[in-house]
Amino acid sequence: MAARNVAMREAIRRALREEMRRDENVFVMGEEVAYWQGTHRVTRGFLEEFGERRVRDTPISEMAIGGVAVGAALAGLRPVAEFMTINFAFLALDAIANHAAKVRYFFDGMFKAPLVYRAASGWGNQATASHSHAPEPIFAHFPGIYVGCPSNSLDAYGMLKASIRDDNPVLFTESIALYPKPSPMPDDLDGDYLIPIGKGDIKREGGDVTLVAYARGVDWALQAARQLARDGVEAEVVDLRWLRPLDMDLVYSSFKKTNRCVIVEESLPMYSFGSEIAALLQENMFDYMDAPIKRVAAEDVPLPYSKEIELLALPNAQKVADAVKEIV
């Protein structure tokens, strides 16, 4: 099948635009999404095509963005609310965790809140501490919401479409570093191409060690796997794609084959994605475990401005490869 390389930003834009064309109730709101054309240019051209009613610039009001999306969703719309970066979504944590995620439960199923929060995530180049977070696990902590974190263009396309069409609230993060990164998308892609919420994917097969990752971590895992292959170590790369629900069957089946695991994430190490996967593995796969589970994450420190020490704090492919070498 013919394919061409598409940047993840373009794939997300395409998915969002197609969903807005498909369903009149889908609309976007957020800071600079309309006239500015989106801080990350995801909504470029949207204002022209859909107008101010469906492409809504908001003030710098994250608490309201978070909560207005809930109210609009309760009342029958399907908002796609953008947090310019996920760092600002902290301001909306109450709206997300206490309202979006719980409104169905505390009225025992009376209402639903079909909304998507989009947020650009990850550290930038010297963006400094308050603008350098990949805190997806914080949001995945709360039952009632799903969390999706794509690692390439085709996944982003199918995951965002599923998120918009699903009746549950979804927090959808987009790695800033992956926005410009091209990856193949089929030319004749079906507009109904959906990736089920909570379905992971094997991005590379291998029998010696399982690398579990999401979003940008998948890139580092794949780079590390190529490097390791030169030394005769075949790594299997499991891209969970969703932090909630977690497709642990995929991890378990890989682990039963490799008996070794390194977990890779862009976020911080304490109470993290890595902690969760490692805990689940030891609880459920103890008999298959031939080596300690290793975790590669950012260093446990706020990110500094200066380049050398910034890079020192962050995960990369080499750190992943080094961790693998400790257990194979």
Partner: peptide
């Protein structure tokens, strides 16, 4: 639209 299997968590 949600994938659920025995090992699904959350």
């Amino acid at each position: 639209l949600v994938h659920k299997s025995e090992g699904s968590v959350g």
